[in-house]
Amino acid sequence: MSMNDLIATIKKVLEEVDVVLGWTRSPAAGVAVPARFHTPDEADGAIFDSTCTHNLAVHLPRLKNSKVGIVAKGCDARSIVQLIVEGEVSRDRIRVIGVPCPGVIDVKRAWRCFGFGKKIEDAGGRVHMEGRSMPREEILLHKCHQCQDQEPVIMDLAAGDVKSVTPPPPPDKTGIRERFAAMSIAERREFWREQFSRCIRCYACREACPLCFCRDACSMQTREPHWTGGQVNAIESEMAQQVRTSHLAGRCTGCEECERACPVGIPLMLLLEEQNRIVEELFAYRAGMSLEDKTPLLTYDVNRDGGWR
């Protein structure tokens, strides 16, 4: 896919929608940032590369009154489908532009290696930063290592050939998943206590999550019901995250936005990945795969349920 394909597709979609959600390059940070394109002139700044990590579906519930075009990677498309299934977004108000995604990189990790604000460019399977470079697959987000959905499940137009994407690279070697899996239950208790002692309760995890759309009524913050207090300590923060995790049971598409947005780097996906695995195991269900789906915890099946033990 060339950028011209993308820009031309956005311009075409702009003829029938009010705004297109996409990415542009931030001159200051050197990486992609989300952008809203209202006019064809604005659309000339559109880009798509492996720094386009954001899941733009998060903006859809906030744009209920306009017709919206959205540039979507395979994983973002699953979030869009889930939003439609839950009635938060209406199918006929949106136009989805699918892009062939080579996997997106962990920008924070790249900045840690190369310095904040360095311009990051992606060419020939390598990520380049001011003369230095490293193979893209060494710095991909974890979700990209196990990606099964490179072709968007919902799509009106494609910018480029979404089928001709590279296969998912081998699993990453950061090791936190292996370490967590090997821990005893008591060690995990300590692990979470330590992790959540760093939580500053900024709710970035919730704001970045496309499916946390309750906004003012979020149970992580409400006084009634009072599931958790607002104090910034490990116990309250852990409970707050348990609230969020359980509310995403059978709904989370695994887009990893919560973990990416977390400013103190709490590995929230350890909980959500485990929950998604359990939901798939019990109900043979992955969220956001089809518009006909029903969220498994909002239904039941008399004939199939209960054989679990």
């Binding site: 995990r188 348990q242 359980s246 059978g250 359990i278 109900f283 915890l297 679990w308």
Partner: peptide
């Protein structure tokens, strides 16, 4: 359904 998911989640929660 809810209790089954919860029960299987407990080890991950510590």
């Amino acid at each position: 359904r809810r209790m089954e998911v919860l029960e299987r989640m407990l080890p991950a929660l510590g």
